[in-house]
C-alpha cells in the first residue's frame, strides 16, 4: 500500500481514516494491542513464550480450516486457540513453564502441517497463506472489529479478576498455594487467555509474528521497570504506539505490515536495552569515587 505521504501527520491520518478498511485496521490493531500487552506481560513473567507462540501458530490451521469450510477466519483462529490452550492445560506437566516444551513443540509442528493441508484442500487460497502467516491489514470488516472488541473485553475482564493471584502464582507458586490460591486452575485459565489473545493478535500480525505484540512490548518494559502496575501500563502504551506507527508506515510504504510491526517493536527493545545499559554504567560511575 502506498499513499502519498505529506509531513502533515494529521492530514495523513485523516486521509487514511477516510478509507473504511484503514479505519478498521486502526480499530482492530488498537483493540488487539491491549490484551496482547497485558497477557504478554504475564507470559514473559511466567516464561511461557513457547506455549504462546504455539497457541498463535495453531491459529494458522484454524483460520485455514475455517476458510475452507466457509466460516469466517476469526472463528477459526479463536476456536483452535482455545482448544489448544485447553489441551495444554490438561497436560500433566503443563503447570509450570519448563517441562512442557516437548509436548508444546509437537503441537506446533502438527499445527503447521495441518495448516498447509487445509490450504491445499481449499484450492486457490494460496494467496491468503502469506496473510495468515505474516499478517495483513487489508479486508478487516466492521463485523470482525466488533467480534475482536467483544472477545478482548471478555479476556480483559477475566484478567482483571484473576490478575493479582495470577501474579502471586507466577512469582511464588508454593507460597501462593499455601495461601489458598488455586495455582493449577489459574495456570489453565491463563493458558486459555493466552490462546484467545494469540488468536486475536494473529489476525493482525499473522500467526508467525504474534510476538511483535505479545513479547516485545512486555519484554521492553521489563527492561525499564520492575513495578507490575507501571509495567503493565507502559506495555499497553508501547504496543498501541507500535501498532499505530506500523500501520502508518505500512500504508505509506511498499513493505508489509508484519515487517513494520516487528521491526518497530524490536527497535524499541534495542533502544530500551541500550538505554538501560548506559544508565547503569553512569550509575556505577557516579557511585565509584
Amino acid at each position: 500500500m502506498t499513499g502519498t505521504f505529506s509531513w502533515n501527520l494529521l492530514a495523513d491520518l485523516r486521509e487514511m481514516w477516510s478509507l473504511p478498511f484503514m479505519l478498521n485496521a486502526f480499530r482492530a490493531g488498537t483493540i488487539v494491542a491491549v490484551p496482547a500487552a497485558l497477557v504478554g506481560w504475564f507470559m514473559v513473567l511466567r516464561r511461557q513464550s513457547f506455549a504462546g507462540h504455539t497457541l498463535a501458530m495453531v491459529g494458522f490451521p484454524g483460520a485455514a480450516a475455517a476458510v475452507w469450510l466457509g466460516i469466517g477466519a476469526t472463528v477459526g483462529y479463536l476456536a483452535f486457540g482455545v482448544l489448544a490452550a485447553l489441551l495444554f492445560a490438561l497436560l500433566p506437566a503443563g503447570r509450570g513453564g519448563g517441562d512442557e516444551s516437548s509436548a508444546v513443540g509437537t503441537v506446533q509442528a502438527l499445527a503447521l502441517a495441518s495448516g498447509m493441508l487445509f490450504v491445499a484442500l481449499y484450492k486457490g487460497f494460496l494467496n491468503g497463506t502469506s496473510a495468515l502467516l505474516f499478517g495483513s491489514f487489508l479486508g478487516i470488516t466492521s463485523r470482525q472489529v466488533v467480534l475482536l472488541g467483544v472477545v478482548a473485553a471478555v479476556a480483559l475482564t477475566v484478567l482483571a479478576l484473576v490478575g493479582r493471584p495470577l501474579l502471586f502464582a507466577s512469582v511464588d507458586g508454593d507460597v501462593a498455594r499455601a495461601h489458598g490460591v488455586p495455582v493449577r486452575s489459574l495456570g489453565g485459565v491463563f493458558l486459555v487467555l493466552l490462546g484467545v489473545t494469540a488468536a486475536e493478535v494473529g489476525q493482525i500480525t499473522g500467526a508467525l509474528l504474534v510476538f511483535a505484540l505479545l513479547v516485545l512490548p512486555p519484554a521492553t518494559v521489563q527492561v525499564l521497570t520492575t513495578r507490575p502496575a507501571r509495567g503493565l501500563a507502559a506495555s499497553v502504551l508501547l504496543a498501541v504506539v507500535t501498532v499505530w506507527v506500523a500501520l502508518f508506515a505500512a500504508y505509506y510504504s511498499p513493505y508489509p505490515l508484519g515487517f513494520w510491526l516487528t521491526t518497530i517493536a524490536f527497535g524499541g527493545f534495542v533502544l530500551a536495552y541500550a538505554g538501560r545499559a548506559v544508565v547503569d554504567r553512569i550509575g556505577r560511575l557516579a557511585v565509584a569515587p
Binding site: P165, V171, V175, A176, V181, R227, P228
Partner: peptide, 28 residues
C-alpha cells in the same frame, strides 16, 4: 526453595506485598 531466577524482574517489595493480599481477586 531454590532461589529466585536472576531473570525474575519483580521487586522485593512486590514479593512482600503478595504475602499480604496476593490471594485477593480483583484489581488492587
Amino acid at each position: 526453595r531454590r532461589s529466585f531466577d536472576a531473570s525474575v524482574r519483580v521487586r522485593g517489595l512486590d514479593v512482600v506485598r503478595l504475602g499480604l493480599d496476593g490471594d485477593r481477586w480483583g484489581l488492587p
